[in-house]
Design a protein around this nucleic acid. Structure first.
Lengths: 196, 196, 196, 196
DNA sequence: AATGAATGAGGATTCATTCAT
DNA sequence: GATGAATGAATCCTCATTCAT
């Protein structure tokens, strides 16, 4: 016999299925915070704890560590896609939104230069798919005749900027990002999240 | 009663002080390889094993995992300093050496944008000192009137380039690094290690 | 940073490498006991605890759960091989030793009818090899003209007897085993461990 | 304020009491399959999933994992009782039915030598009661003057045969069972389920 | 000065069981 | 009556670090 939860002892609340969606959102939010503080390799238990749920809930919603990370990034990427799809958006606007996410989310920075060896987070596969979505979003906005010197140079520039984004405070990261774009001679719109 | 060393009693080799230096070097070399293959989070036991020494030796030479990483980087940094100090070296030459290390060593890439959050390797503190040494090495070679737009922009550029350096093969990493320098309009000399 | 054993806190004794062999033996003995009480699926932590060592020691000596079980069975099997190899041993003698192990070791019973599905212990592969060694040991002792009705019937009989061996006490198990052999019309020597 | 059931609001089907019996049967059938594939230690969630019901339903019908296993075995046992009670049934016939269940159901094999130690499934108690029912069923068919050498030898023989029943395929298991009966000199009727 | 065993905390993952809906 | 989410204990396994020899 393996598990014998004491039946008589006080169980914490179980808000029932209604909580499911709320919990999932809480987990993603918690993961974002934890990642910002401790990096993509942070223990999943920390994420669950911060979300205020048991570990099992995390595993119910996400099969593995990569799925958690992907869920966090998914939100970043979607905003960029939306910014790219918005009426009258310019490349600068989209880059602004992207820069905002870069300054906001350590995980997103990681995504944008998607290491190689090492990170045990095993997102590589998903990362590729996600960064392609970003690329598609950006590519549509290269103005006529706009050259960055080659087909892949836009993403190279993105990687470079994300390499530049270091620093403990959001402000510092934003400044560095902007300086980096300046160095590349690329104009960036207002740095902010996409709001419909 | 002290025990007489007997030849037939299998005791691990103890080559005396001479071995100490050799071991240290072996550990650093092993660490470099292991880091390249498995990232900075690789188990120290793997480093010791690859170096062909016991774990204790590792701890004799390095107080903790940060010290190991630092020692690896130390070698990279020293080469850059030497390149910078060499007779007649130009900025491009130094950057070439640096780029070589960037393409060679995953750990060094990490150093150059020294995340802040995340890496459990706890090098933060050391990293700062090391990257300042790199900076000093480079700064001395800014030709008269050479402006990168501001005091810190050189290191920003370095961070940007290291952000660009991704890819599974050395060749790919070198190409990306060179493309990144090109995008920044900065000339780079031959990409190679410093050789006195 | 993942692990931070409190350096200042009292560490339990570390008897050094000398303890290694002792520990391994303790682990095998503990495993045998634990298996007898709780079956082959018992938690490895229970084995380590009973052996009085940390979990890590267990994993140092045995790569996985199957290795532990194999080590336990190995001893049983070796005794049977020795009994079979002994001067002047008859089939009955060897079966006596085997029966002793059958009554003694729950794990060994399991080996002899090597389930199929289910047991998470994952010994299947090793079990096969081990039970073949038993078979070889026995086969050499089939007296001339002795027929059990077919090539595999000896092992079938063994499996049948081990199926019969149930019961909480050693005595009861021995009685059932002997009754089973009787039912099969096979003579068995004294039930006891092999002693050189 | 009570909520009116509305057709469009997705609520899980609730087919009323009629479904209860159907669900119970589905659970037992599912458990039998799952046990066959993954052993008695298979997660209950797998059983519920395979039965196409929620976990709660499983717990409504069975207080714990032992109850599930017992229910599965109950069906096996009942068939044997029925075979024993049938008009004109001989011992061989009943043994045939029993052998069929032995080859069919891993769980039933386990029942018949009811380990004692080990199985975390905690059926021990129930198992005893069930195997007594089997015994009663068989005992009534011992033909006059039929001796197996002692009061308990019939069940011993059954245990022996079930010990012999191993192998991945049904066919192999049946062959081994028949060979075992032959070795014991006991005649067995056609191996098949009982059909009224 | 080296070896390599031991410790044990920490993180991942899996289920048994409960319970809001 | 059914659903399926939530809880959290238990187990597995991996290392960082210490220490007897």
């Amino acid at each position: 016999m393996k598990q014998q939860p004491r039946a008589d002892e006080r169980r914490p609340a179980n808000d029932g299925p209604k909580a499911a969606a709320r919990n999932r959102a809480a987990l993603v939010a918690a993961a974002r915070e934890v990642y910002a503080e401790s990096g993509l390799d942070a223990p999943l238990s920390a994420v669950a704890r911060r979300a205020g749920v048991g570990q099992g809930v995390l595993y119910r919603h996400f099969p593995d560590r990569a799925a958690v990370a992907t869920a966090v990034l998914e939100e970043n990427v979607r905003q960029i896609e939306q910014a790219a799809a918005a009426e009258g958006a310019t490349l600068a606007d989209v880059l602004g939104v992207m820069t905002w996410h870069l300054t906001e989310s350590a995980a997103f920075i990681g995504l944008m230069h998607a290491d190689g060896a090492g990170s045990r987070s095993g997102i590589r596969a998903h990362a590729l798919a996600l960064s392609e979505r970003v690329e598609r979003g950006l590519r549509g906005h290269l103005p006529d005749g706009y050259r960055l010197g080659g087909a892949n140079d836009l993403m190279l520039a993105v990687a470079m900027v994300s390499g530049a984004v270091t620093g403990p405070t959001r402000e510092e990261r934003e400044q560095r990002a902007l300086a980096a774009w300046r160095l590349l001679g690329i104009e960036v719109g207002p740095v902010r999240p996409f709001e419909g």
